[in-house]
Design a protein around this nucleic acid. Sequence first.
DNA 1: GACTCCCCTGACAAGGTTGTCAGAGCGCAT
DNA 2: ATGCGCTCTGACAACCTTGTCAGGGGAGTC
Lengths: 350, 350
Amino acid sequence: MTEHADPAITPYRPRATLREVAAMAGVSMKTVSRVVNGEAGVTPQKVDAVRVAISRLDYRPNVSASALRRSSGRTAAIGTVLEDLANPFSSVLLRAVEDVANERRVLILTGSVDEDQQRERTLVRAFTERRVDGLIIAPVGEDQGYLRAEMEAGTPLVFVDRQPQGLLADCVLSDNEAGARDAVHHLADAGHRRIAYLGDLALIPTAQQRFAGYQRALLERGLAPDPAHVVHDLHTVDDAARATAALLGAADAPTALFASQNLVTIGAITALQELGLEHRVALIGFDDFPLADLLQPRVSVIAQDPAAMGRAAAELLFQRLDGDRGRSRRLLLPTTTVPRGSGEIAPEAR
Amino acid sequence: MTEHADPAITPYRPRATLREVAAMAGVSMKTVSRVVNGEAGVTPQKVDAVRVAISRLDYRPNVSASALRRSSGRTAAIGTVLEDLANPFSSVLLRAVEDVANERRVLILTGSVDEDQQRERTLVRAFTERRVDGLIIAPVGEDQGYLRAEMEAGTPLVFVDRQPQGLLADCVLSDNEAGARDAVHHLADAGHRRIAYLGDLALIPTAQQRFAGYQRALLERGLAPDPAHVVHDLHTVDDAARATAALLGAADAPTALFASQNLVTIGAITALQELGLEHRVALIGFDDFPLADLLQPRVSVIAQDPAAMGRAAAELLFQRLDGDRGRSRRLLLPTTTVPRGSGEIAPEAR
DNA sequence: GACTCCCCTGACAAGGTTGTCAGAGCGCAT
DNA sequence: ATGCGCTCTGACAACCTTGTCAGGGGAGTC
């Protein structure tokens, strides 16, 4: 660490206010307000005087004060409550929300919840205490009923990725069950009969839906579900790697794997590589991830489109902000099967 | 898309204010304020009355109004201006900032600039108009002098990833030059004499520093820099893939590649795989990326630690907010050489 | 019983802004 | 000269809070 020699420490000069601008320009505060907001009815020379004062004082309107006074009360900020900003799913979604919000000059407050119900509530409360204009939430836990008060106060809510419980509200979801079903059918098409399920925390609704899709496909194919081939509650790469290794080491090991989530897929690949089985055991992961097509074998996935989800959620939110008070909507985005190699490996004759 | 039948549309009930709580509890507004802020000097029965009213009305303090009135004027929110939230470097950094801010119950406003100087200014202005308590900025473009006014107004600024130009302020950087130098030495140690440089936009300061490190290492090794082995201005995976293919197809092709950035590394890998050269041409990338250790060969990198940068930047910022008015500091975080395979490939005898 | 002292409480103003409205100033017709 | 209508402007209140301060009331002391 190095230290710069600073120029003499300057005492802070607090930000200029409307009042000071008005004083310098020799007009009333209201006139300054008019100029700042581009309202008509100010003579050009006063406009000029105000402009000069504004730039001389480097005046910045105080948006909070303005929102406080304005009849609409809009703060031009929305809150996003996501699972984990460091996870590409969340961050890509956030970025898409940002792009839509940006067109309307709306700012974004954001935070991660990490599957922590309490944290979800804390964040929502912090956001509403700042009077955000709307909220986009990837909900966690069993009950979002506590949000009814926000809706009644006129703050639109859009849920993404997971459906809210105990509350009727707009939401944007992937078709998790259909996607999982596709994955299993795809593996079955390649000839597999022993297909394992590697699942995320069983209490997460999307994990439940994916598991339901897995079960349904087995049923449709007349394959007997084997409890020994189902593992739940894998939430990290290491969990998943360990579970995969255990599965493949057991008697009657599966010949194909369905990994129900990003990190689980990566854990499975890690284990497969360690066992040298990556070209012999088939694998399909739910949710695409960067570099999936540079691995050997390339990894087949059921792709969600987090950017599309973010965009859709933001657009829905802004429709509400624009006054749409219609019934609440549920957008189900289809998933895409992306065959790249790992999912097309045929079972070995034994 | 499906539509739910909503319960009868309820007219919005605007949020309750302090005044209403006071009226319901039969006390003055100030007393409610005291209860809300946990100030001493209210009899237990009045506290109870207020508590009851608060929960009956579902009262939420208006943080903006509160900040406006409070002497400190703190909004308990900071702004982060990052390169691209969808890029893991930015999002991991953001997440680290969030974790530090969270301990202090400070919220985060964020936005992406995409190398757009104008956007940087717009975002900073939007944030300061909301009176954020501080800013963390990954600066873009040639001049951050316009931020002097913010510093003078008492808003602490911390720069990350890149040094600000034309302004003396705290910053947290990776030691780009040393890292690049290490990479080239590492390749030279493996016996390479024709080492190519694949660089990001040449106007980005970090790219310049990495190029400087590359040049210095060649010099130290007595290797003649070959202009044909230097490519600048690669900013996407496709750019990098094309450039790599061109380099390797030319006469006197390099036997080793130094990719100066994430996406460039991935582009180089793509090209190497297409040419079937991934096991014959050495590669070291600047900046680690997920799955680098699952590729074949595993990819050697010079790792930065974006989480550490985010944490350090946030801690620096909060020190300033806690009143530290010392000289501005420059934190230079070391990079780590992570040998995984691709950087240890020996040159082929020809 | 008079007096101090302390604890609670509320009235009032202020923080930076905008909505309302009345008044000032002007041109023009009568 | 008077009246009318118009445009431009500022005084004032209000948005929701909190800081300040003075007053009311009770307990404790002499």
